[in-house]
Amino acid sequence: MSGGELLLQQLINAVSVGSLYALMAIGLAMVFGILRLINFAHGDLIMVGSYVALLLMMAGLPFLMAAAAGTAASTIAGLVLERVAYRPLRGAHEIAMLLTSFSVTIFLENLAIILFRPTSRPFAAPALLRGVIEMGQLRVASLDLIAIAIAAVLLLGLTLFVKRTTIGIAMRAASQDLLAARLMGINVNAVIATAFAIGSLLAGVVGLLWSARVGKIDPLMGFNPVLKAFVASVIGGLGSLPGAVIGAYVLGGLEILLQGLLPSALTPYRDAFVFAILIALLLFRPNGILGSTEREKI
């Protein structure tokens, strides 16, 4: 394989992984922007959607229908989570909200262990997602291209949503100044519910792509994605949507880059190197790449 082809191959890899992180990170960033809540239970929405999709496939439903139902299940789970666990804490201290998100995670994961048993189950993606496209020496998994395409469509749609629609602009307004938003008659509960719905829907999509990639699912599968998404949004600047996306692609790129550059004895410690680089980055830009450093005008 030539150098150029290898580079292209790794680039596709990086963008594909970054796309999954980006779709996850947006959900975290949207909620954090408005509520200052780091919703660690976001990862479990991935798990919920994947299990619902898998069980429906096992019941004989075609993949696309099962996937749609799984995504819907993630979205509904996210909305229920907001209503039952977080809304009663409106105005509470950030630490209380953070602890609640941990509790929700523990609850959901243990519920899943009881309902679906703790061991992993194979997640058989349809042939379309398992294909490999060969172009000369280049071998690209069709799943990578599909993930990139889906992420591109969703990110574009989301951009139009927050830039053009009234509720999207209201969401940005609420994340900048919640009190002013309330004084202008913005229905803050509706805005927050919308943020949860969109984030959870994206998590549902990520869940399916992630499961297809890994090939199996288990009750604790949400932990790694939510951790990566959290790191991505910290790199980008917590609460910033463009920041979350940029951070996600930086993280994906770093991972693939180190995977390729590290001597094979060290690749198991790849994440340690990735995080070391990120710590260095945060030393220079503590608020992340797009985090605001400007003070309020007097």
């Binding site: 009234t166 602009i169 209201a170 940005r172 307004a173 900048q176 100044d177 009190l179 002013a180 938003a181 004084l183 202008m184 008659g185 913005i186």
Partner: peptide, 26 residues
């Protein structure tokens, strides 16, 4: 009953026009 708060509290990341649109929210 509309309250224009102390310290202006405009939405800094929104354009002037978007700020006005938020005022006309309802």
């Amino acid at each position: 009953v509309i309250h224009c708060p102390e310290g202006r509290r405009i939405f800094g990341g929104l354009t002037v026009q978007e700020n006005l649109r938020m005022g006309a929210m309802r």
